[in-house]
């Protein structure tokens, strides 16, 4: 092999390696929501909950958990708002997150009351964060209170973007749950 060919190959190898590096950055940008969702699942299971529902179409995700000891449920909906590297570099990895809590109710009146409330909720501007709405699952007897929020996902994934802070995720979800249960229980007493 001549010296000139070696020099050409060195440039070729460098171009390929740089491409892999850039591809890795782009690949990570599209996976941030999946990494985060996996961390939510892991955090919930660590607290003794069971994952009972998992739906994902690649960008929109929904998971539901149940605490088998008291049958209470927690739902988590995630939609990545900046799924490309360019959008993420400009705005950070933002996502619509909707956290919900559910209680099993055996009183038909309460269920129906929540169902009516859910009907009214359909007319509320859903794209605004921080609005608590009620939802009733008549078939299984659960009433849910849920709140949409906007989270910056990179705050939870460590410096490398690959190492989720499970404690922080669990703690932030728990804080939302406490407030939602307070609201839900208050509404159920009034119903």
């Amino acid at each position: 092999m001549t010296g000139q060919t070696e020099a050409y190959e060195a440039v070729f190898v460098d171009l390929v390696q740089k491409s892999w590096k850039m591809f890795g950055e782009m690949d990570h940008a599209t996976r941030v929501d999946d990494i985060f969702l996996g961390a939510v699942i892991s955090s919930a299971v660590r607290l003794g909950r069971c994952l009972i529902d998992l739906e994902s179409d690649g960008t929109s995700h929904f998971v539901r958990f149940e605490d088998m000891s008291n049958r209470s449920r927690m739902t988590f909906r995630l939609q990545h708002l900046t799924p490309t590297l360019m959008a993420a570099k400009a705005q950070g990895h933002q996502a619509n997150v909707t956290i919900g809590v559910g209680r099993l109710v055996s009183d038909l009146g309460k269920l129906w009351g929540a169902f009516k409330q859910e009907f009214k909720s359909a007319f509320v501007m859903q794209d605004e964060p921080g609005i608590v709405t009620l939802d009733a699952d008549m078939s299984s007897g659960y009433i849910y209170a849920q709140i949409p929020l906007i989270w910056r996902l990179e705050e939870y994934l460590g410096d490398s973007g690959w190492q989720p802070d499970y404690d922080k995720i669990a703690s932030h979800i728990y804080c939302c749950e406490v407030s939602l249960y307070k609201y839900l229980d208050g509404r159920l007493k009034l119903a």
């Binding site: 996976r31 996996g38 690649g58 995700h61």
Partner: peptide
């Protein structure tokens, strides 16, 4: 697998 330090990266 998260205990091993292996994050979930997709449901595909």
């Amino acid at each position: 697998l998260s205990l091993t330090g292996w994050p979930c990266i997709g449901f595909t």
